[in-house]
Design a protein around this nucleic acid. Structure first.
Lengths: 114, 114
DNA sequence: CTATAACACCTAAGAGTTTTATGTATCTTT
DNA sequence: AAAGATACATAAAACTCTTAGGTGTTATAG
């Protein structure tokens, strides 16, 4: 598990990107997918995830549909058109940010630095 | 300028790493260095930086010395032994975190994905 | 020579996100 | 029958950062 601070600010980007690749997903599924992809190192808490999903829906980036599995409710989220745009932008921005951080933290140092 | 959220959680790591490479730096110098290295894309605000420096000093990761330049005061910060350890750990952790994020955000996709 | 910008420190209220804690309920496995 | 996994949700508290102030010095441009 990574220290909590690192994850800050990445939640929206993660949600949007997963939905860009999966058409529709529900909350619990997202937590499991992230746990899988991160090899258990990132565990989204429900207290953070659900409010984030609600906010993305409220701002028009996500739409929802409820599906009943027996008596249990699942709430599927999908990207809206705006949401798809935002997903692309957020991922690009994050990618650029990582490049900048590599420079600042002097990661990938050049041969002649060694 | 990157959206504010991304920077969250990276400030301590940035400070510690810069001091790992520069022996001693003062607050204003750190803001300028980060601006330089990031090509103007990251501007640390003083309202965030100074409290962060004070906190790192209070927790024993940094030590200080005041230097007078004419009548103006500069407060130089240096890593303590513990601070140097923490710097290494934080940078490593951040580096690992970036690798995980690459997977989640599906950056650097493989040939056969294209 | 004086006003503006740069240098250099600082704090505090508020905004925003996440953690922690809690609640409800269904389904599956032991 | 109990425990754990599935599935949603909210609310108080913690934490970090932004915004918005404040003080004072030095250099530069008009």
């Amino acid at each position: 598990m990574y220290s909590k601070e690192l994850l800050k600010g990445t939640l929206q980007t993660i949600i949007l990107k997963l939905l860009a690749e999966n058409d529709r997903m529900y909350g619990y599924e997202i937590t499991q997918k992230v746990k899988d992809l991160s090899d258990g190192k990132i565990n989204l808490t429900e207290g953070a995830l659900y409010p984030a999903l609600h906010k993305l829906e409220a701002t028009g980036l996500l739409s929802t549909e409820k599906v009943y599995i027996g008596k249990r409710v699942r709430k599927y989220y999908s990207l809206t058109v705006t949401g798809a745009d935002t997903a692309t932008n957020k991922v690009t921005e994050f990618s650029n940010f990582m490049e900048t951080m590599k420079i600042i933290l002097n990661l990938e140092p050049k041969m002649n630095d060694l």
